[in-house]
Amino acid sequence: MSSTEQGTSSAAPAEPTTAPESAAAPEVPESFYYVHGKDKVVHKVSAGALQHSALIHGMISNLGYTEEQAKANPFPFENIDGDILQMVVDWCNQHKGKPTPPEDTNLPKQKEKLFDLVLAVNYLEIKELLTYCCKQVAMMVKGKSPEEIREIWMIPTDAEDEAAEKEAKKRAGKEAAGETAAAAGDAK
């Protein structure tokens, strides 16, 4: 069903008049926060850019840090590699204050980093970037056969999975036995 509602004016509207320019609002200085990943390299990011991350936005919204306090207390993200955090920060800066288009060409190009990026973005709750990354991963196997999907995503077969599980159990059993023996030796 198509909407066909369209307007046609009966009388020509008068010539447009120049709208009075609104008085320039006093500029509020932008606040900055600091984040670091596994490599401890600190990145300075504006609050505007960090709004993309629901996790960080939630953390900072009630803090009211001064510049010094923010600098002294960088947010530690020990589970995120430094280069991945750098990618995320760059993306947030590029998209500061604007909605992301459905096809984002500013996404980091390194495909080998995509796995870590997806995990980081999911952890930091950056919805738009997560959507874009996941779309990229999904596109890799769209229309492929199960064999091709297995190869592209390196999916182990159930038999391989079971063998790996058995191997892991065996290893864990051996390690546990070793630890018990060591403990017994210590006790003697």
Partner: peptide
């Protein structure tokens, strides 16, 4: 060219579900 995504099986379920929702039904 695609370069693969060899850690698909290690991705947490939350992210896996997010990826799968962008697949068409056949895939």
């Amino acid at each position: 060219f695609i370069r693969g995504f060899e850690k698909w099986s290690q991705l947490n379920e939350d992210c896996r579900l997010h990826v799968v929702q962008f697949l068409d039904y056949k895939s």
